[in-house]
Amino acid sequence: PLAAAYFNQETLQQRLLTLIEGARETWTYAIFWQSSVDVASGVSLLGWGDGYYKGCEEDKRKQKATNPAAAAEQDHRKRVLRELNSLISGGAGGSSPDETVEEEVTDTEWFFLVSMTQSFVNGSGLPGQAFFADAPNWIAGADRLALAPCERARQARELGLQTMVCVPVGTGVLELGSTDVIHQSLELMNKIRVLFNFNSFEIP
């Protein structure tokens, strides 16, 4: 019960932030996928628990969409961003439009936002596979992401990510993504174990 009490949104966000901001490598985001079981169907599900988006070099480059398809994609992303902003600020017109929703939405920002809508049923997708096998899955390199048996990994590659890592921790899966190629690191795996050891009664 004590461990459960510590496992709340605030400490989870703090753990994600500590991991990403304190890492030697440059990670773009971290997501915790929370496991649950649908009582009626018995289906095991991994859904959004929390996430931390740090960003990457892409965010610093102000690329203006130069072709019609890219411009249309940006329009679509900004429209979705406006709707989401409206949702969390209490309805349309609840907040004044600002650069938060009017500036370009980068590929990795978009990937992170789309992730909030995703879930993985009965061991599907990279997070589901890691959870089901109770083993980490570390994919480094765009070519390896392209070959991964997972639609999410392929989408990640298309949106500029080069490394995806899924590590089963406690009641879910920790996923890390980067636009850099990052090879497996024992140091990071140990850090994850310490930060996400939900059996521990100590707040990291």
């Binding site: 959004w48 929390d50 931390y52 965010d59 949702l87 969390i88 650069e99 938060t100 909030m116």
Partner: peptide, 29 residues
């Protein structure tokens, strides 16, 4: 709005806050 689960709502709020910080840091002035 009521249908948006709390975990996603809080994550979205944080995402927008951080995005604003990033954009402010990148602004020329």
């Amino acid at each position: 709005n009521e249908d948006l689960p709390m975990a996603r709502k809080k994550s979205l709020q944080r995402f927008f806050e951080k995005r604003k910080e990033r954009l402010t840091a990148l602004a020329p002035y």
